[in-house]
Amino acid sequence: MAHEHKHDHGRDHDHGQDQKPGRDRHDHTALDWAVMGPLLESQAELFAPLYERAMAWLAKEQTDPGLIVDVGSGPGVVACLFAETFPGARVDAVDGSEPLLERARARADRQGFGDRFGTLTGELPEVLAELEYPADLLWASRSLHHLGDQRAGLAAFAARLAPGGTLAIMEGGLPSRFLPRDFGIGRPGVEARIDAIEAEWFAQMRADLPGAVTETEDWPALLASAGLKHTGSRSFLLDLPAPAPDRVRAYAASWLTRVRDTYGEALDADDRAALDRLVDPQDPAGVHRRADVFVLAAHTVHTAVRAG
């Protein structure tokens, strides 16, 4: 269950700290987080402005948290942003992947937060019982949807809150975009067609999880059902317009490559050919060279508070 505020499938539903497509599209639970560590880091770094705005919003509710827990932290980019944003807080990064947590600890040490940064390895939500103290702020960015029973997962998250503590989950938002609808290769609208394939992949990933429960994803209602109060939701935008710098181009190329490799069988021949050209570093029409590459993404954060 490693998650770095990510996308689970191809490019979106987890563009953030991290989208994580499966290694084998027929095995929706076979996700190799450790191999994806560098990609998850680069994605989260790119999305840092979005996370910073979300944290500024959270800081209005939690002005001086003692303990912040990042549930499904992946390689720790966002956990370290929390440490920077809340200099008085201890931050615990929780994930199922020890290799990703090793990256998180190294990042915290490099950035000077090592003395107030901890990690906890184990499966969610059970591992949360091992937290030494209740959390004043518990953040779960696109980690909840990796649990078969999301309602039970939220209850487990809520149980680890201190009185007056805030639970913040990042789920939902809008599919990300990198290119104009018609970018001059193949049939216009390829990103919308990829969205549809990703939605099917995501539904199958959820259905294949152990103990999978179908749930209406009304997050404020689910937070309230966990006994929490004062629910709120807000969406945050990442807008990196064209012409894109090299790191944005590299990110777009990495994700389009993963989309092609993950969904190749589901795409028609024209769309596969278009993706082949887009990720080819030597093709003038590829994302490494073209002038119209951008990133536009929106992620939604839902919050609620444990009664004091």
Rank of each mutant, 00 (worst) to 15 (best):
Q282P: 00
G10C: 04
G186Y: 00
R290G: 10
F157L: 15
R53W: 00
G153M: 06
L238N: 04
A168G: 07
E45C: 06
A34I: 03
L275H: 10
D218S: 12
H288D: 12
E217W: 12
A168D: 07
F236V: 07
P99W: 03
R260H: 15
Q19V: 15
A54S: 14
H5N: 10
A54K: 00
Y51H: 15
F202K: 08
R151N: 02
A273N: 12
L223T: 03
F178E: 02
I185R: 04
D195T: 10
L147Q: 14
V77Y: 03
L278V: 10
V35W: 07
E123A: 15
L154F: 05
K60H: 13
P21T: 13
G186E: 02
S235R: 08
V248F: 00
A226E: 02
T231L: 05
E265G: 14
A244S: 13
G308W: 00
S225P: 02
P125N: 08
R193I: 06
L101V: 05
H299V: 12
G189D: 06
L256R: 06
R103L: 10
A207E: 11
V78H: 03
D195A: 09
L223M: 09
D149T: 02
T216Y: 04
R206G: 02
M55A: 11
A285S: 11
R151L: 09
A273T: 11
L209T: 03
P87V: 04
W57P: 08
V279P: 15
G37H: 01
R53Y: 00
R25V: 14
G286M: 01
A203N: 08
P49F: 03
